[in-house]
């Protein structure tokens, strides 16, 4: 049986009740967080089916797609951590800051996670800078930043930002994936215009995400063409190729390979391919392209078949 005081208290609570997560400001904070879809390297797949290629398959371009997929998978994993907060309202709301958590990381027992997003407003009250930190800890340990970011603009889909992924901390906490790098990775993105660019600096992270250490760069234009810079793992001779590719929306393109070999070989090779990822032109003084069969210098196909790209 409830006492009269308890009943009065219950009534007072009911009268004072105003609860929920209906918040325009929360929407503004969530719109400042980059989405997986927005930070995605788009590399055209080209025509389906693999016909017999006259010169040979453009393995370099095929590597571009697998590299892009690896980067996208890595970014997805990173942003998935951040997007966790979309599933529940902020724990605390301050005028220019929101905090989510701490909450127990369901994927990693014993680990707590927390996200803090702060913003700065200009004189007109428009947000111009957002700073966010995703941190984790194993109590009673200290909070370690897993991801730190900075974003300029009001909405992530068309702003400029950077992310620092502290793989060293996620490894220290035991929450890293096996393929994750071991040193901090830095991501820069600029979605303000045409092209949109994404840069993933894994220079200090050999084999992070299964990729060689490199400053990966992607630019995508509104009409579908773009550029992708990446690196190929060393071949049997220890030669490593850094590749700059330009591609059309249809999937044909051209690439320049900067070849670094242990024996002081350093130079460029050029290739072009069609929509079916078949080589149409090869100019490879070092015969690193398989279609050259080791014959140096190697010149195959017709340069006129190359698309008119920068």
């Amino acid at each position: 049986m409830r006492s009269a005081a308890e009943r009065r208290l219950a009534v007072a609570i009911a009268l004072a009740c105003a609860c929920g997560n209906l918040s325009n400001e929360d929407v503004a904070y969530l719109e400042a967080i980059p989405q997986r879809g927005a930070l995605r390297l788009s590399v055209p797949a080209g025509a389906s089916g693999q016909p017999a290629c006259a010169i040979g398959p453009a393995d370099v371009w095929t590597s571009a797609r697998t590299t892009g997929d690896a980067i996208n998978a890595g970014l997805d994993g990173i942003l998935a951590m951040v997007e966790t907060i979309r599933g529940f309202p902020p724990s605390t709301r301050a005028p220019d800051q929101r905090t989510w958590g701490p909450w127990p990381d369901q994927s990693h027992p014993g680990v707590q996670a927390r996200v803090v997003i702060a913003r700065e407003l200009d004189a007109q009250g428009v947000p111009w800078r957002w700073i966010y930190t995703f941190a984790a800890r194993r109590p009673p340990g200290d909070w370690l930043p897993i991801l730190e970011g900075e974003f300029f603009g009001a909405q992530a889909r068309d702003g400029v930002g950077r992310l620092v992924i502290h793989f060293e901390n996620s490894r220290a906490l035991g929450i890293a994936n096996p393929k994750d790098p071991t040193f901090p990775g830095r991501l820069y993105y600029d979605l303000t215009g045409d092209p949109r660019t994404i840069s993933l600096d894994l220079t200090d992270n050999p084999l992070g995400f299964g990729l060689v250490g490199f400053d990966y760069f992607w630019a995508g234009y509104n009409d579908g063409h773009g550029r992708f810079d990446y690196a190929l793992p060393p071949d049997a001779n220890g030669c490593r190729a850094e590749v700059t590719t330009w591609f059309t929306a249809a999937g044909n393109g051209k690439g320049a390979l900067h070849i670094h070999c242990p024996l002081v070989v350093d130079g460029y090779s050029n290739i072009c391919w069609d929509q079916s990822s078949c080589l149409t032109y090869v100019d490879d003084p070092f015969a690193v392209i398989a279609a050259c069969n080791g014959v140096k210098p190697c010149k195959l196909g017709n340069a006129a078949s190359c698309p008119a790209l920068p």
Binding site: A14, L15, C17, A18, C19, G20, N21, L22, S23, D26, V27, L30, E31, I33, Q35, E83, R86, G87, F88, P89
Partner: peptide, 11 residues
């Protein structure tokens, strides 16, 4: 889809 459903209740 990135924005969750929101709600509010009051007297």
């Amino acid at each position: 889809p990135e924005l969750p459903r929101q709600n509010f209740f009051t007297l």
